[in-house]
Design a protein around this nucleic acid. Structure first.
Lengths: 226, 226
DNA sequence: TGACATTAGTAGCAAAAGGTGAATAATTCG
DNA sequence: CGAATTATTCACCTTTTGCTACTAATGTCA
């Protein structure tokens, strides 16, 4: 079982937002609160970096414990150091987004569970703010970082990929346009496998394999601003 | 004169990347190193947050001291907490990007100076990494956050705005296309002032005034990824 | 004063990119 | 086998973008 961070006040914590698709929704991994006096019963996995340890490594440790394995990516999303309460009473908490491919196993033991992000239980205020920042970052990075691919196994169907985008964007996308744009960007390559998912025509499996940038000259886009 | 942070080892520092356009280049504000034994003679302005003080407020203090006034924006760019050296020997350093409109006065006293970002003197390794992260963040946020407008005074010409974009993107943009996209996004509104800048036709001044979003339905763009 | 250089701002067109619905393909189920 | 279901592609049309060229307003200098 994992070692729980000491209850002593610490200067710094790393708090992990472990996300995975669960059906048509995004799920977040929460730990049962260690402190029985805590008003909130659940909290983000968190830990205190060891002296000299890189923040990413500390976050990876915190993510690994309840998950039972390493997430496919971990990236920083922001630091909060104001008066809002943190379960470890850390002065500053740094949020990390950990992405787990769909089909993740249940968390280790009964001390952790997945929650749909739109039905989260009450959280310590600072962690609640980190969750909001992380969800915003996830959507912001969707078009510039391969986050969607990190929420899928190495081989996936284009319909699965589109579902991830729809889940993260919160709206339906047109299938033909989605595929045309994807192919034009040389981001995926087909494998020679096909998956039959019950009824209907089997789908070809693709893998994430970004190719060289073709002439990337582009004007400026102002329509994504504010 | 500003109070220099204590030389004691601290758990945390906020380090500020103060940027302003200088001619056709971006300039960064550096402080002369406090420690005479330091190999690098210059360093990013930095400070240690007071207990209970929000990180943004601490960063604003650190930015204000050498600049003599508040920057137009300050935003977090990332935290580094690995083995790389920091002048205050902080365990973790959080980088903040502070933007200053063009035409900034010279820094306060002789303890600070502007340097073009592509000709920076040697910096403490951790601060060097923060600078790189900050420049990347600046370019990444260019299309989703009004950073370019924060590098200009409240009233500006469209040519000035285009120059900022060209400076940040490192490439020339087409005038007609730039203006057409800008007008279509309802981001600026004309004032009734005109500026005569020596030779050539006088330019109308505009101000940043984002209007309501017109139907924002859009497909997914994959061409900005990786 | 008038030709010319210089900077600002616009039009218009062709090409590329994007949105949409329908057609076609390959399966499972009954 | 035929209906239902899912995948994949096509064809058509609209919007966006890149580009060249043009007009406008000012300073310079002979």
């Amino acid at each position: 079982m994992r070692e729980r961070p000491s209850a002593r006040r610490s200067a710094l914590s790393v708090d992990v937002l472990t996300m995975t698709p669960h059906g048509a929704r995004l799920a977040l991994l929460l730990n049962r609160a260690a402190d029985p006096r805590a008003k909130e019963r659940w909290e983000l996995p968190w830990d205190v970096p060891r002296p000299g340890e890189a923040l990413d490594d500390a976050a990876m440790r915190a993510a690994r414990a309840p998950l039972g394995r390493a997430p496919s990516t971990i990236e920083q999303v922001g630091a909060i150091g104001d008066g809002r309460r943190h379960p470890g009473r850390a002065g500053v908490s740094i949020g990390f987004l950990a992405l787990v491919p769909a089909g993740a196993p249940a968390p280790v033991g009964g001390a952790s569970a997945w929650f749909p992000v739109d039905e989260l239980p009450p959280l310590p205020p600072r962690q609640r703010a980190l969750v909001d920042a992380g969800l915003t970052a996830l959507r912001t990075r969707l078009e510039i970082s391969p986050v969607a691919f990190r929420l899928l196994p190495a081989a996936f169907t284009l319909s699965q990929l589109q579902e991830i985008y729809e889940l993260l964007l919160g709206r339906r996308l047109h299938k033909a346009s989605f595929r045309r744009a994807l192919q034009a960007a040389w981001l995926v390559e087909p494998t020679d496998e096909w998956r039959s998912e019950g009824r209907g025509r089997p789908a070809q499996l693709f893998r994430f394999a970004p190719r060289k940038r073709r002439g990337g000259r582009r004007g400026v886009r102002f329509d994504a601003m504010i």
